[in-house]
Simulated assay, not measured.
Amino acid sequence: MKEENVILVNEADEPIGLMPKMEAHEKAVLHRAFSVFIMNGKGETMLQQRARNKYHSPLLWTNTCCSHQRSGESNIEAGKRRLLEEMGFKTDLKELFSFIYKAPFDNGLTEHELDHVMVGYYEDFPKINPNEVADWKWMHPKDIKDDIAKKPEDYTAWFKIIFERFYNHLLEKTVRNEG
């Protein structure tokens, strides 16, 4: 299978080239990525546990799905594609915000991404792809926040960064709706 390229970007999210995914992670080059959070009507977030065979962060818990956009693919198209590939379902997605982060891994690779964070809603069971996902569960955001504080080693490096921003976004939305 041919290795996928990632879209290299500047800090304004303007494409500046393509690079093989592993090379971008070895060199810690800024590239475009996305993170999808799926929620249900109870306000819970769907988490996935990464498959054992993943080249980094195996068996750690993370957001519903995340990956990299392909050349010519919109953020929403990429999120929907990967959600179907990993979790086996389709739903509408809405982009919430984007930001840049850098997260080094124990294996010498580094995620340096301009991440587009999206949310969608789903009420059913996923049909997980066992090559990508070991397990899944629904959790309330407050419970996720508490669990990360107690057991940070159970979660991916990027999820801990992204979740803090997602959680704050949910709080701000709640305050705006109540105010």
Rank of each mutant, 00 (worst) to 15 (best):
R82L: 14
K2Q: 12
D92G: 09
V119G: 02
K42I: 03
K137H: 05
P141F: 08
P126K: 10
L171S: 09
E153M: 07
L18F: 07
I76R: 13
Y155G: 01
W61V: 01
M118Q: 13
F125C: 10
L171H: 11
A51R: 10
N10T: 02
P126Q: 08
T174R: 15
E123S: 08
D154K: 14
A33F: 02
A134N: 12
F97D: 06
V117Y: 05
H68A: 14
D146M: 14
P58D: 01
K150G: 02
K160T: 03
I162A: 09
P141Y: 10
D143S: 12
V9M: 03
M87L: 15
K27Y: 03
D13L: 05
I128E: 08
F159A: 00
E153D: 14
D92F: 06
N40T: 08
Y55V: 04
W158V: 00
H140R: 15
D147K: 15
D115I: 10
S74F: 10
N131V: 07
I7G: 01
D92W: 06
P152E: 09
T62P: 04
E73M: 10
K94R: 12
G108N: 08
M46K: 06
P58A: 02
E172W: 13
Y155T: 01
C66L: 13
T45H: 06
K151Q: 12
K142G: 07
R32Q: 13
A28H: 05
H140T: 02
N177T: 07
S67H: 09
M46P: 00
I148Q: 04
L170I: 09
W158G: 03
E23A: 11
R52T: 05
H25R: 14
T62K: 09
V36G: 04
F37K: 05
N129P: 00
D143K: 15
H25K: 15
Q69T: 07
K94S: 09
E86V: 01
I161F: 04
E113F: 04
C66Y: 15
F99L: 09
V9D: 02
L59C: 11
K2M: 11
Q49R: 15
N5I: 01
G108Q: 07
D143P: 01
Y122A: 03
A51N: 08
S57R: 08
N40E: 11
L84G: 03
I100P: 05
S71C: 13
N129S: 08
T45L: 15
F37L: 11
K137M: 13
